[in-house]
Design a protein around this nucleic acid. Structure first.
Lengths: 256, 256
DNA sequence: CTTGACCCTCACGCAACGTGAGGGTGTAAC
DNA sequence: GTTACACCCTCACGTTGCGTGAGGGTCAAG
């Protein structure tokens, strides 16, 4: 691939992308979008590749993801632009559907107004049940390691109801509780291997196929990502390490 | 109208509207949505009317308006729910169109990827040219006083291009510059009446029919709303009062 | 050289909540 | 009556993602 010689100044890039210069400064500052070049006088110079990354950033931002998450996604070794674009497309289509739902609720409200009747509150707020970002994100975090896995989980989860999500959450929380209990009871990671296996099956059932090798990769992710650490540690100090070790113990005994 | 006996606790209202309890606390705190009742123990109790107001809040929030603006709109004496719903509907439909545009840009990006070609940057970011809230807001501020006027201006402005907006802004800025120059030169508001007339015609041309009486109402708004004050004062100290007085002088001489 | 548009870094401030802390209320079960 | 649990209150620190200057440098045209 030929080196891209065309560059844009910060204001040019901002204008093209419909964002502010300050936004681009900020993204540079936090390492989200660092311009590929700087002029001799220190001016930021953005390349086409930079603009493509910016496009991804704006798509995910539009979908409501926090910048920190966006950065992690884009920097993941398994990140693949085509797959990401497709996934983002699906989420955007879903968003359109929801907005259409809001519009229909407006129509019904206008209708009720003209008839002098009242709408049920639930129907008034249709379309506002935005997908739960925390939920999506927690689950998404378990996916990012595997792009194909992400795709598969998207295929599956798109049809999940609130009840499904509630069940997923209950099951997940239950497993975490049991991990915490095992740790508190002084058990070793090897003793918790069954729990790890159940955890793996939980992901397999609800999200995507997960080999034990993949599970170990996930354990690495748990240890590396401070947000997982925060989640686990809030339950029991040392839980992150414990879960990760249990996962490794599970993989090791399967290999035995 | 019969008094509405049905009430909802804060969590019930939050669940119905798909927002958090904290959000409702916050809205109460800032006076945006104050529950109609409180129980003997101090619990917030929301009525159906409260939920209808919340619906409006969420619609305008969804469209990107700041809460302060939302509050002003809903508290305006000329606020009319049906008209507001219709206007919001139109803005939401526009938003759907823009998101569809984003999706089409994704499709083109995927196409280019498969062909190994590159997209023009402008086309990559199509759909992200979100309507300029500051612009809309500045212009909307000139509308709120008259609901019919708002409707008319919406009808007109929906088809305005970026060039139109640029022209509007240039004209508006130009007028403001001339007002500031007149003030700085020590002219009286009476001497600036012609400018006021041009200002009135500017609004008539781009937004809605504006009588001189209506123009005076606008002058009142300029003086009453701190945000206008901020805008004018940033150009020249005392400009708010000057413009308002010029508008009144213009109306007075037309009556002479 | 001057002017005007653009560039840089630095940094205070804000909107809109999120997340506890600490304590009260209501209801059902024991 | 006590306990447990889910919900309620106010208070308040903190976060995210910029907006808005301040103060000064760069570039190109007149």
């Amino acid at each position: 691939m030929v080196t891209d010689a065309k560059t844009y100044t910060v204001s040019e890039a901002a204008r093209l992308a419909h964002v502010t210069v300050r936004t681009l400064h900020h993204y540079d500052e936090i390492g989200l979008l660092v311009p590929s070049k700087r002029s001799a006088s220190g001016y930021r110079l953005y390349t086409d590749a930079d603009l493509r990354r910016l496009h991804q950033i704006l798509l995910l931002r539009e979908l409501g993801f926090p910048l920190e998450t966006i950065g992690r996604v884009l920097d993941d070794p398994s990140y693949d632009r085509a797959t990401a674009l497709r996934a983002q497309r699906e989420l955007l289509v879903e968003r359109i559907r929801r907005t259409e739902s809001v519009v229909r609720a407006i129509d019904r409200a206008l209708d009720a107004l003209e008839r002098g009747t009242e709408m049920e509150p639930e129907r008034l707020f249709e379309g506002f049940e935005d997908f739960d970002h925390a939920q999506y994100e927690a689950e998404a975090r378990e996916r990012w390691g595997h792009t194909e896995a992400y795709k598969e989980s998207l295929r599956r989860t798109r049809r999940y109801t609130k009840e499904d999500w509630a069940a997923i959450r209950a099951e997940s929380e239950g497993l975490m509780d049991e991990f915490a209990a095992a740790l508190t009871a002084g058990k070793s990671p090897e003793d918790a291997a069954d729990l790890a296996e159940r955890h793996r099956l939980h992901i397999e059932r609800w999200f995507y196929p997960l080999t034990r090798e993949g599970h170990v990769g996930l354990a690495d992710l748990y240890e590396a990502d401070a947000r997982f650490g925060k989640y686990f540690e809030s339950r029991a100090p040392g839980l992150t390490q414990f879960v990760a070790s249990a996962i490794r113990a599970n993989a090791a005994r399967a290999g035995a």
